[in-house]
Design a protein around this nucleic acid. Structure first.
Lengths: 135, 135
DNA sequence: TAAGTGTATTATATCACTTAATACACCTAA
DNA sequence: TTAGGTGTATTAAGTGATATAATACACTTA
């Protein structure tokens, strides 16, 4: 719905989830995918709040969770920075991946679908994509 | 956490999600997997509420959603029954499956993982299971 | 008729989320 | 030193989703 850019990081905010979770997920994703480099600074709490027209407390909540994940470090008076440890980022990436994969497998099990069915479906789906239907 | 059985349907309730969603999902799953047969009766609103020690209104909310899904039909004065149309159940199954698969693909994309990685991981995961570690 | 169905209504309580207004300690640049 | 930027903590308030409670009604079946 709402597409905005703050300090080179793009955010899209809607009303389907809590704001702090959307911010959290999108910064996580940007770090994990390398769109924000190791050791790089991320927007200050107030700056991001201003940029997204939301309350600083809401941004704070997302930032505290980021630090619990080990993805960021704060420096007093300076700001918040992505960790310099590629190991930590990688560890987090794998942790979340495992969790999401297991949840997905459980979902497919609940629908009575076999992994063979699902795999075939996705294989075909991605082959079609390569076919060039979407620019 | 809490494991209970009501009219041959087993429910496990915790506090991680709204009650009505858990009831909804677990009855959906039971229908889709054939654990409740086509045309079969499901517990009455009051009976399920009594069995799970929750409010009838909460069960109602789940039951209304089930009917919107096309998975159940109500008969005045008699109760709520699973649809007799296997087509409807199948349509619902595929609709939900597609939705969950696309969400999953999006998640993996956000983590910067390729489908090849994910597929290999799950393949190995399920092979290990067959190996007989879990009874 | 009595008891069981689904359904609707109104009221209340709780909790998560969000905003708002401050305040404090720290760092940095002018 | 000062001014303005950092993260952080606190207190208060409002909103909406969730859940409970107590009733009531129309319908069906035994």
């Amino acid at each position: 719905m709402d597409q905005k850019e703050v300090s080179g990081i793009s955010f899209q905010i809607d009303f389907s989830q809590p704001l702090y979770e959307q911010i959290l997920n999108q910064i996580r994703s940007a770090i994990v995918r390398g769109e924000i480099g190791l050791g790089e600074k991320i927007p200050s709490v107030r700056e991001l709040a201003r940029g997204l027209h939301i309350n600083p407390n809401t941004v704070m909540r997302a930032y505290q969770e980021l630090e619990r994940d080990g993805l960021t470090e704060k420096r007093r008076g300076q700001g918040t920075f992505v960790t310099s440890s590629s190991k930590r980022v990688e560890a987090f990436r794998m942790e979340v991946a495992k969790e999401q994969i297991h949840t997905f497998i459980e979902q497919m099990k609940n629908l009575g679908l076999t992994w063979e069915n699902v795999r075939a479906y996705i294989d075909q789906l991605l082959d079609d994509d390569k076919g060039g239907e979407n620019p």
